[in-house]
Amino acid sequence: MAESNHDSEHTAECTEAPEYGNAVSSARRVSMARDEYGNLPGLPRLEYRLMEHKSKLFLVSGLLIFEGSILPIILFYPLWYLTDLRHGILFAIITSFFGLVSGLEFAHRSWRLIHKNDKYRPLDGTRWRFDFTHATLSICYTIMTGILIGASIPHEPLVRPLAIPVPLLFIAAGMLCIVTGAMSALGMRTACKVSSIPKGAPQPPYVLTAVEDVVGVDGGGARHFRRRLLERYKASKYFRRLIAELNWFWGIGSVINGAGSLAAVWVIPSQEIAYGVGWGEPLGFFVVWTVITVLWTRRGLREEKKLWAVNSRDKVAVMESGTDTQNTN
């Protein structure tokens, strides 16, 4: 009876979930092992502990933030005000540092994805096909680099255009979240393979894809994490709700912040101040949104645990009540 109830609980919960074909068809649907959620039948475990990878993640994240926000500012103002360097040379120096850390990390990420060992590739992925986040980042980095090089070429560099790459990146990422969030809410399906999600499956919010790709490759979670994340998303409507909320939070916030920063760059009378705003303001937004996201996620996962446990108990009670009635009859 316990095993029957267990399977019924999981089946009932999964009927509300989107289907993702072969990506999770071979994965286990039920997890009885005790983890951070305790013994919760039917709730797949993510089996990934961030603190075990904290050194690399914090180091890489810190270097990327330094390169993409702090370094341009600390190079620009001293060189602009305290030296006699021609402005073209000044921005050539700054631009030469852009992509140093992100380029190395991007190359390392590329190697992991194309290595003959498919450990880090998306589920059902091929060797020469990157995950969705890698493809979108490639486009964004190309555009940002083009802007930096193009605006640096004139004898007197175009300072304001040189300040807009990060706001544009935030707008692009935010729009991606909003579009995929709307597609998910409307029940639309993917037009192509999206990381581990096959073509023709229900479109997930981009936050789910970003978590899958970043943790799966950069965080070392590998294919096992990709599989478990999709299992969790498939099984738990509470987890799907949390992902949707975070997706709208980042999507709307990123677009508003990026558009505001972009407008400020062009409206502020001093181009020198505008340059600092374009590179520095998005960092403040990112830090605040990240802190809120961490707190929100912790609270959401605790709530998921409580609601899943209550829902499971209610289903067992209904099934036992029906069994008792049949036995009486």
Rank of each mutant, 00 (worst) to 15 (best):
M1A: 11
D7P: 02
T11M: 11
C14D: 09
T15E: 14
P18S: 08
E19P: 00
A23C: 12
S31K: 06
G38M: 09
N39A: 13
L43Y: 07
P44N: 07
L46G: 06
R49Q: 13
L50C: 10
S61E: 12
F66R: 07
P72S: 06
F76T: 07
P78K: 11
W80I: 12
L85Y: 12
H87I: 04
F91A: 00
T95I: 10
L100R: 03
V101M: 05
L104S: 05
L104A: 10
L104W: 09
E105S: 08
A107Y: 07
K116I: 07
K119I: 02
Y120D: 03
R121Q: 04
D124M: 11
R127L: 05
W128C: 07
W128I: 03
F132G: 00
T142E: 01
P165V: 07
L168I: 08
M175Y: 13
L176T: 14
V179R: 06
G187N: 12
G187C: 10
R189W: 04
K193I: 04
P205Y: 07
P205N: 10
L208T: 03
R223L: 04
F225E: 00
K234N: 10
K234T: 12
W250E: 01
N257P: 01
A259K: 04
A264F: 06
I268V: 15
G276M: 09
G278H: 03
E281P: 00
L283C: 05
G284W: 09
G284C: 08
T290L: 12
T297K: 03
R298P: 03
R299C: 13
G300S: 14
D314E: 14
V318K: 14
D324A: 15
